[in-house]
Structures are given as C-alpha cells and as structure tokens.
C-alpha cells in the first residue's frame, strides 16, 4: 500500500468534480450564517460530525469490501432530500471516472455497470481506496477530511477569506477529523457481524433544508 496514493485520492485537485461543490457553505453564506473564519469553523465542525461521519462510515465500509449496492441503498436512506442524493450520485459518477482511470479495478467496473447514473460518492471513493490497496481507515479519513476541506475552500472563494486562516482552521480540525474517521472505520469493521445498521447515520437538519433550497436557486456559483 502506498501512502502517496491516499494523498492523491484525498487531494482537492483529484479531478473528480469536487471543486464545483461547496458542501452547503454557499447557502450558509447567503443566509449570513457563515460570514467569517469563526463561523466557518463552526460550520465545518458541524458538517464533520454529521455528513462527514456518515460518509466516512460508508466509504470505510466500501473499502472493507461490503456489498456496494447495499451500501448505496444505505446511503439513500441516510440522505432524505433529493437534491443531496442527486449531488452524491453526480459526484459518484465523476469520482468513478477518475478512480477507474487512476486505480483500475474490476469492482469499480462492476459498480459503474450496475449504477450507470452513479453510486453515492463515498462508496465509489471507498472502492477507489480499496483498489489503491489502502485500508478502510484510510477511506474514512479521506471522506472525513473532504467533508471540511470542500466547504473551507469554497468559503475562501465566496468570502475572500485569508487562505492561511482557512488552512489553520483545517489544521485545528485535524485531530477531530481523525477521531471521526476512527469511529467510522470501527463501525465499518462491525458490519460483517452486526449488519449495515451499525454504520453511522448522523444527519443535520439545516444541511438537508438548505441543500434543497440551494438547488432551487437560479443564480449560484457552486453546484451544491
């Protein structure tokens, strides 16, 4: 296994479509709920422990070899609004393209054939991590990191924040990100004995509501 492969998969420059998504921060900025680096940190912390934990669990379970189609259903049940399901599948398709080009695997090919409209992104990400020879914990870490890295980068653009402040924010969250990833990977390790219900389903009412609101905007910079 290659550490560098994990860095590649978790890099915001990995060409899998993430740069056009704000993880809900564009809506939060419009509502003035996020307006500076402190409110951005609170946003990122909340997203990490909700969406971040849930996606990390799904990614870790996929990396551990759980049936990706069952995981895809589990992801649907954990994503109650259509706008965010559509985003997750669209990003899943884009991640699939990049993953198959970088870490070809029969499992990725099979999932692509079975879910031509895209599987939920963390599941594709987990399979990519698996194809790269990495661990479920690595997958959880990449997904948890992405749950804050995306919004932080988007907020830098939307609010013209100092990028150094944003990096410091992400550094402050890194221990919590590890904790979330560890919890997600622990849950994924118990799926074989306890079933998929053991995976986290942490959710946030505002991310669901504003995610659907944002999708209805006619003018926006980010796709979500």
């Amino acid at each position: 296994m290659s550490r560098a492969a994990l860095l590649l998969l978790a890099d915001g420059r990995f060409p899998a479509g993430g740069h056009a998504h704000s993880g809900g921060v564009e809506a939060a900025v419009a509502h003035k709920a996020v307006h500076d680096i402190y409110s951005l940190e609170a946003f990122c912390r909340g997203r990490l422990h909700t969406t971040g934990l849930t996606t990390a669990g799904l990614a870790a379970a996929a990396a551990a070899g759980c049936d990706p189609l069952l995981l895809d259903d589990a992801a649907d049940a954990r994503t109650p609004v259509p706008a965010l399901r559509a985003v997750a599948r669209r990003l899943g398709r884009q991640m699939m393209r990049a993953a198959r080009a970088t870490f070809p695997s029969a499992e990725l090919d099979r999932l692509a054939a079975e879910r031509p409209q895209g599987a939920h992104q963390p599941i594709v990400q987990g399979l990519a991590v698996r194809a790269a020879g990495l661990t479920p914990k690595d997958a959880a870490c990449a997904a948890a990191y992405e749950s804050t890295g995306g919004p932080a980068t988007a907020a830098v653009r939307l609010l013209s924040l100092n990028p150094l402040d944003a990096s410091r924010l992400l550094a402050r969250l890194s221990a919590e990100t590890d904790t979330v990833a560890a919890a997600a990977a622990d849950a994924a390790a118990r799926v074989t004995t306890e079933g998929l219900d053991v995976l986290p389903s942490a959710s946030s009412p505002l991310l669901d509501i504003t995610g659907e609101q944002h999708a209805a905007w006619t003018m926006r910079l980010f796709a979500s």
Partner: peptide, 19 residues
C-alpha cells in the same frame, strides 16, 4: 457549475464537462 473557478472546470478537473 464551476464553483467560482471556470478555468478549473475546463482544464484541471473536466469531469463535470465530460459528463
């Protein structure tokens, strides 16, 4: 949508356009 980075969408991460 390009997330405020139109050049990224046509050059560095073309996945949305390819879609």
């Amino acid at each position: 949508e390009t997330g405020a980075c139109p050049h990224t969408a046509i050059r560095d991460d073309i996945s949305a356009n390819l879609e």
